[in-house]
Amino acid sequence: MSRQTETAYQFMKEKIFDGTFRPSQKLIESQLAELIGVSRNTVQKALLKLEQENLVEIETNKGATIKAYTLDEIIHYLEILDVLESLVVKNATHHLAADDMQQLETTVLQMEKCLDQNQLDEYTSLSMSFREIIYKAAKNQKAVELIRGIRSPLRRYQLRTMLLPGIKESSIKEHRKIYDALQKRDEQAVELAVRSDLAMVRESFLQNYQLLL
């Protein structure tokens, strides 16, 4: 991917994640090219990459739109994540080095500080960093690739989920539980903590789907 294509791709991806580009919104290539400062051909290449990540839909002679997900589709994604993340985190439990554990602890402390200061954007970024430390330690990287592919389209809902009452407090508790279980190298506790975290997310969608769109 060329530098300009990467620039266009990252620009549009962030606009999807932060909610500037809304589900089912039509994307006009000429407008995007002018906005980003690249050629229309570059925008088309970036859109193809976003289509591969299930973030946009491209139809012949109709152009691209931001992909919208039904509640059922989101719940199905979360059900798959429940299985895959349990597998990967259990797999990583005995492969995390001392430096990895230190990074996890530092990340959790930073997350707690962000919540105290109501810095939710930074909190969600740290939450992803927390998971990436674990993913990199896992031996089953094929499963990790699948997880990243599933989590990508769900990322747009992260910040809005954090704004729901009680979610940020529950979220940090779940991250702390995962860290504590990993520190003890307790596979069963790790699996329970990961599934508890995803169950909280699933319940949030079931109860507040319309608010999260």
Score class of each variant (00 low, 15 high):
19 G>T: 10
24 S>T: 13
25 Q>A: 11
26 K>C: 02
26 K>L: 05
28 I>H: 08
30 S>Q: 11
30 S>K: 09
31 Q>M: 07
32 L>N: 00
32 L>Q: 01
33 A>R: 00
34 E>A: 12
35 L>C: 02
36 I>C: 04
40 R>S: 09
41 N>M: 08
43 V>M: 00
44 Q>K: 13
45 K>R: 14
46 A>S: 10
47 L>Q: 03
49 K>P: 00
49 K>Y: 04
50 L>Q: 01
50 L>Y: 02
53 E>K: 12
53 E>D: 14
53 E>Y: 07
54 N>F: 07
55 L>Q: 09
55 L>I: 08
55 L>E: 06
57 E>Q: 08
57 E>M: 09
58 I>S: 02
59 E>N: 09
62 K>W: 02
62 K>C: 02
63 G>T: 07
64 A>S: 11
64 A>Q: 02
65 T>V: 14
65 T>F: 05
65 T>Y: 06
66 I>E: 03
68 A>F: 02
68 A>K: 10
71 L>Y: 01
71 L>V: 08
72 D>K: 12
72 D>S: 10
72 D>P: 00
75 I>G: 04
77 Y>C: 12
77 Y>P: 00
78 L>A: 03
79 E>W: 00
79 E>Y: 02
82 D>H: 12
82 D>G: 07
86 S>C: 10
88 V>Q: 05
88 V>D: 06
89 V>G: 00
90 K>F: 01
91 N>T: 06
94 H>E: 14
95 H>T: 14
95 H>L: 14
96 L>A: 04
96 L>I: 08
97 A>M: 05
98 A>V: 13
100 D>F: 03
100 D>H: 06
101 M>L: 15
101 M>R: 10
101 M>K: 11
104 L>P: 05
107 T>W: 02
107 T>H: 03
108 V>Q: 05
109 L>E: 15
111 M>W: 03
112 E>T: 10
113 K>E: 14
114 C>G: 04
114 C>L: 04
115 L>W: 04
115 L>G: 06
116 D>K: 15
116 D>Q: 15
117 Q>H: 14
118 N>M: 05
119 Q>M: 08
120 L>S: 06
121 D>Q: 13
122 E>H: 05
123 Y>V: 06
123 Y>A: 12
123 Y>C: 07
125 S>N: 11
127 S>L: 08
127 S>G: 15
128 M>V: 15
129 S>W: 02
129 S>E: 14
131 R>T: 08
131 R>P: 00
131 R>D: 14
134 I>P: 03
136 K>D: 13
137 A>F: 07
138 A>L: 09
139 K>E: 15
140 N>F: 10
141 Q>W: 12
141 Q>F: 11
145 E>V: 08
146 L>V: 15
149 G>N: 14
151 R>I: 09
151 R>W: 05
153 P>D: 09
